[in-house]
């Protein structure tokens, strides 16, 4: 029981890259495209952010440039998918493959190192929060003392909600997924909104990726380790709603944090413990669909 609070704290750390990636994925999903490429985009963001942080000696500038690179990759993905009418699933897989190869090739070209690249000039991410705030019992322990990315992701989530539900742009994105002809009959181009949503995916994945590497001050090949896929799960588990993403990402983060803590406490094979997050998320998925099913039963 004494681990509950650090576990919750850890859950928030784990959920942040997932939340960021899934926000961008939410835009593509709502515009009617299944974005398999989140994993590759995250990896691209992770790599580019840290190398630019290294070269510019500024984490903020580096992150911004990393985001730009990721958006370029997602723009390529979008244009091949939309203009060449390619299957979004294959192009997504292609982006994942491309990112995993390209990051290593670039890392070799730049640093003559295909493995872990440690960047000495990158300081640890500052943890935010004043000591007074941290003193608030329980809540302070859980919510205070994370990196700026964590709080930024919450701000972005609010922005994401605002854009989707309180701006014309968001309504058009949603209309693109729901009824693209309704847009085109009014002279708007659905593909433009799909393109924009891919760019947004690039943006949030770039940011999410930056967190993964800046957090360590190092780039490790394949550092994303499937987080892009989990972000996709988060979108579905979150019922394609911004607030749902928060809940779903937290559920996964908590399950993962639990499995991390459980490894020390439970004497069962590690493979089983590593499977906990997936099984737990699966159960949550089933639970939420049972709930949705009961709620929306019998449609005429």
């Amino acid at each position: 029981m004494q681990f509950t609070i650090p576990m919750l704290h850890s859950a928030i750390t784990i959920m942040t890259p997932l939340l960021l990636a899934s926000m961008g994925g939410l835009f593509t999903e709502l515009s009617g495209m299944l974005n398999i490429a989140l994993e590759g985009l995250l990896l691209m963001g992770a790599f580019c952010s840290i190398i630019f942080s290294y070269y510019t000696a500024s984490m903020i500038l580096g992150t911004l440039l990393g985001i730009v690179c990721t958006m370029i990759l997602s723009a390529i993905l979008a244009s091949v998918t939309l203009n060449l009418k390619a299957n979004v699933f294959i192009t997504g897989l292609a982006v994942n493959l491309f990112a995993s190869g390209m990051t290593v090739v670039l890392s070799f070209a730049l640093f003559a190192n295909k493995g872990v690249v440690v960047f000495d000039n990158i300081p640890p991410l500052p943890l935010l929060g004043t000591p007074e705030l941290a003193k608030i019992p329980i809540l302070g322990d859980i919510f205070i003392g994370h990196s700026a990315f964590v709080y930024l992701s919450w701000l972005l989530l609010a922005l994401c909600y605002f854009v989707l539900y309180r701006t014309p742009f968001g309504f058009r994105i949603r209309a693109t997924g729901l009824h693209p002809e309704a847009l085109s009959s009014l002279g708007m181009r659905p593909n433009r909104y799909r393109f924009a949503s891919f760019l947004i995916s690039g943006f949030t994945c770039g940011l999410g990726g930056a967190l993964l590497t800046l957090n360590l001050g190092a780039f490790v090949p394949n550092i994303t380790a499937g987080k892009g896929w989990i972000a996709l799960v988060v979108i579905f588990l979150g019922n394609k709603k911004p607030i749902g993403l928060l809940i779903a990402a937290f559920i996964f983060g908590l399950a993962d944090a639990f499995s991390n803590y459980a490894q020390g406490a439970l004497n069962i094979p590690s493979d089983f413990i590593l499977a906990i997050p997936y099984i737990f998320t699966l159960l949550a998925m089933i639970g939420s669909s049972i709930y949705a099913n009961k709620k929306g039963a019998i449609e005429s």
């Binding site: 681990f3 650090p6 576990m7 850890s10 750390t13 784990i14 890259p17 993964l212 957090n215 360590l216 190092a218 490790v220 090949p221 394949n222 550092i223 380790a225 993962d256 944090a257 991390n260 803590y261 490894q263 020390g264 406490a265 590690s270 493979d271 413990i273 590593l274």
Partner: peptide
């Protein structure tokens, strides 16, 4: 206290594991 990451590259998970071990 012995723990498994599950792969050779998820350094962030290593950090989470190490934190939880430190807490333990």
């Amino acid at each position: 206290d012995f723990r498994v990451i599950g792969n050779w590259f998820d350094a962030n998970k290593t950090a989470d594991l190490a934190t939880s071990m430190k807490n333990a």
